[in-house]
């Protein structure tokens, strides 16, 4: 059966292993493909990926376009763009979907400008309306509002945030086609000299975040926050005043001018909940708030609130959690 309608997702790999965001993109792509009757294609660029490419089929791709080249081991914006633009011009997808990763957010705008296409960055949802139009749902004003964006032209290009959707079950009985394409390359103008694991904590991908705010009286006291984070298997976040006072690094900052996070559990300790802070964490699945002031705005968006002194509550909470999860 031939089908002109298609959706293309840009898969990501690191060290020749496919990254999990790729499977989330396939899952979202499949949701839309099922509604519009489109085929779902994946593009994979890298090297030594012959076996890995099949994984994309197991997770929902009907076809995988595989571009292998030694210079594609690492992301190169202009070379990746060149090959994807050619494929898009040939396949004419309705939707081109990338992850809202550093890679996706660096590559998608180049594709959009090259194709003169509309781009919606950092979507939290993508839907199809009754007429078959693709609607991109994205936060704006640091998450204070959700904008529903439509696009007048094809393809629609969007980047999708991590964990906006769940990947489907791996199904090794799924059949699909891996199509190897000749990689086109231009000399890269950017040379990678060194790579290292980032020492930075990655708040945006954390499942559990334990955050501190002005309720802490001095920098040393953050040790109990660290202890709680360790107990929960979480990472440490902070509201802006603690960062401004130099108590903790900027990479820990949650909010307006810091990180926007969506963990499974967010524990706010001594954070009253300024609009700047709420903007960065209100999409957390579960919010637990600890604050002395019962009228603090944080309680309005909390699932669990405890009104009291964090200096007593946090140590009690640590021992309670330890007692229950060990």
């Amino acid at each position: 059966m031939t089908n002109n309608k298609n959706i293309i997702i840009i898969a990501e790999q690191q060290n020749s292993k496919i990254k999990s965001i790729s499977y989330e993109l396939l899952s979202k792509g499949k949701d839309i493909a099922e509604k519009t009757g489109a085929d779902l294609f994946a593009v994979l660029l890298g090297e030594q990926l012959d076996n890995e490419a099949n994984e994309l089929i197991y997770y929902g791709a009907d076809k995988v376009f595989l571009y292998q080249h030694s210079s594609f081991r690492d992301f190169d914006p202009q070379n990746f763009k060149l090959n994807i633009v050619n494929l898009v011009q040939e396949q004419k997808p309705d939707l081109l979907l990338l992850g809202a990763s550093h890679l996706g957010r660096s590559l998608a705008p180049r594709l959009a400008a090259a194709l003169q296409a509309g781009l919606s960055a950092d979507c939290v949802g993508i839907e199809v309306d009754d007429e078959g139009n693709i609607i991109q749902i994205r936060p704006a004003f640091s998450g204070s509002v959700l904008a529903y964006v439509k696009t007048k032209t094809k393809p629609v290009i969007a980047t999708l945030r991590y964990k906006s959707t769940q990947s489907r079950k791996r199904d090794t009985s799924r059949k699909g086609e891996v199509i190897t394409r000749e990689a086109e390359t231009i000399p890269s103008l950017i040379t990678i000299l060194r790579k290292q694991k980032s020492g930075d904590i990655n708040l945006t991908e954390a499942d559990i975040i334990v955050s501190g705010g002005r309720g802490f009286k001095k920098a040393d006291d953050l040790s109990i926050l660290a202890e709680l984070a360790k107990t929960c298997g979480g990472v440490i976040g902070a509201s802006r005043p603690l960062v401004d006072d130099g108590w903790i690094g900027k990479e820990h900052q949650v909010g307006f001018s810091g990180n926007t996070v969506k963990p499974k559990v967010y524990i706010a300790c001594g954070i009253s909940g300024s609009s700047q802070h709420l903007a960065g964490m209100r999409r957390s699945d579960i919010i637990i708030a600890i604050n002395t002031d019962p009228s603090a705005p944080i309680f309005k968006i909390a699932d669990y609130g405890i009104v009291g002194d964090l200096y007593e509550i946090v140590p009690n909470l640590i021992s309670e959690i330890k007692g229950r999860i060990l």
Partner: peptide, 26 residues
């Protein structure tokens, strides 16, 4: 501009459990 904002909504805070406790003791 190929894209346009069709509508704007406030993120729903619905579904928050809102269970509150008072006190710092164990």
């Amino acid at each position: 501009s190929p894209t346009f904002v069709d509508k704007i909504t406030l993120p729903s805070e619905g579904g928050r459990k809102g269970k509150t406790f008072k006190g710092s003791d164990l």
